[in-house]
Design a protein around this nucleic acid. Structure first.
Length: 413
RNA sequence: CGGGGUAUAGCCUAACGGCCAGGGCGCCUCGUUUGGGACGAGGAGAUUCUGGGUUCGAAUCCCAGUACCCCGACCA
């Protein structure tokens, strides 16, 4: 991709009212733009990162047996009155009427819709278990959106739902999903802790949150350094000692990047999603649900992967794998050299962003730091027929020949 | 929703109640530059959020509305 073709531009100054680092760098780097409070566009650069995260999540959910589907954002009032949540869910639904005066809502979560679907196909214990997920826009009438992408009113969520004949089967699968969550966060460059959590208005028997430690986070958690037990202060209160091993707990701030629930038969009971067991008894289906907010995950990555100059993307979700800066491009020899490197990298399927703009070296370096692609290459008069290579995170510059560069790149990606 | 704050060009901002709302970034033109946000000259770009009020005179003071931000609300 040629940087001269970008729609967005970088900004020198932080947006006026911005506080969160991720908010500042995402806007300044040209990744996102605000439409109105809590509602954001993902610009081409931001959308590339988003798509990488989406694909990682899709892969991991598929790996634990999930089948992808898509449920509607527009939902009728009836299913929400059936579950008893039309007026009680928090944050509230965006509600409105269609031209026939029929009441509708924009879905903030999909337990109602999926329970209706599952109930219609699952008749017997022989039909269980089943696992489905979607990656879809959610709408939440938040009291107050905050911090750029960290809390918004419209966002994309991966929501997975599992259906089981027994609580034991749910428990086993729940652990499996929890493991896949850890793996997925790690692929995104994050270390997430699983903590005991409140189930809020989703309901159910118990739930766990995945928290990434960050001073900018708004969740307070207590963590046991010895056995790894952890809880959100919402449920744990102000504990000082681990209930499992009596070690002294550590208090930390963090960002919630996922929440999984053992719903049990909460929705199946209310919405009559029943199956017949081995003895011919009708029973409510046992369910679990598992959610991740994608834009929040993206912002959280930046909260814990940046320096004073800009973002430092982890390899797997960077918008491009390498950033090639062409300096002195008015010099024919340098220009054709840079274009040659650009084409060679593309021909071995490296995602390369080529800064071919008519800008000074300083501008290109500053923008590269801000945008945060993990590997920076420079071709200029000074580098001659070599290529300067620098890792965004480490910051040491090395001169490579073309073959050394190609070998290195093949080894990394 | 309760509390607090802000609103001046695409972005960041200045302006005691007093001349034509000033500057920086970005944008256009010309020239000089070119390894860490270059320099000079010229140019375009504003209903100072909206509506009322006070005043000889309002970006500035008052009232109302709106929008956005921050703290609070068991939120992915």
């Amino acid at each position: 991709m040629l940087q001269s073709n970008f729609l967005s531009k970088t900004l020198r100054k932080n947006p006026k009212d911005s506080v969160a680092i991720s908010h500042q760098f995402l806007v300044r780097g040209g990744y996102i733009q605000q439409l109105t409070s809590g509602i954001w566009s993902l610009l081409p650069l931001g959308f590339r990162v988003y798509q990488k995260i989406e694909n990682i999540i899709r892969e991991e959910m598929t790996a634990v047996g999930g089948e992808e589907l898509r449920m509607p954002a527009l939902q009728p009032k009836e299913i929400w009155t059936a579950s008893g949540r039309w007026n009680s869910i928090d944050p509230p639904l965006f509600k409105f009427k269609d031209r026939h005066k029929k009441e509708l809502a924009l879905g903030s979560t999909h337990e109602e819709v999926i329970t209706k679907i599952a109930g219609s196909f699952i008749d017997s214990y022989k039909d269980l278990p089943k696992y489905v997920f979607q990656i879809q826009n959610k709408f939440r009438n938040e009291l107050r959106p905050t911090a750029g992408l960290l809390r918004t009113r419209e966002f994309v969520m991966k929501d997975m739902y599992s259906f089981h004949a027994t609580n034991q089967d749910l428990d086993a699968y729940y652990l499996k999903v929890a493991q896949s969550y850890k793996k997925l966060y790690s692929r995104c460059g994050l270390e997430a802790m699983m903590v005991n959590a409140s189930s809020g208005t989703i309901g159910g028997d118990s739930s766990n949150e995945f928290i990434v430690a960050a001073d900018s986070g708004e969740d307070n958690i207590f963590l046991c350094p010895d056995c790894g037990w952890a809880t959100n202060s919402e449920v744990g209160g102000s504990l000082s000692v681990c209930p499992q091993c009596q070690a002294k707990l550590i208090a930390k701030k963090g960002i919630e990047v996922g929440h999984i629930f053992k719903l049990g038969d909460t929705y199946s009971q209310k919405m009559k999603a029943l199956f017949m067991d081995e003895r011919g008894n009708k029973k409510p289906i046992i369910a679990g649900c598992y959610g991740i907010g994608l834009e929040r995950l993206m912002a959280t990555v930046i909260e814990v992967n940046h320096d004073s100059k800009g973002i430092i993307w982890p390899q797997e979700i960077a918008p491009f794998q390498v950033h090639l800066l062409g300096l002195d491009l008015e010099d024919e020899k340098v220009l054709s050299r840079a274009q040659e490197i650009y084409q060679k990298l593309k021909s071995i399927n490296i995602e390369v962003l080529f800064d071919d703009r008519k800008e000074t070296a300083g501008v290109k370096f500053k923008d590269a730091d801000l945008i945060g692609i993990p590997w920076r290459l420079v071709v200029s008069k000074k580098t001659g027929d070599k290529i300067e290579v620098k890792e965004r995170r480490e910051g040491k510059e090395e001169l490579f020949t073309e073959n050394q560069l190609l070998d290195k790149v093949k080894a990394i990606f």
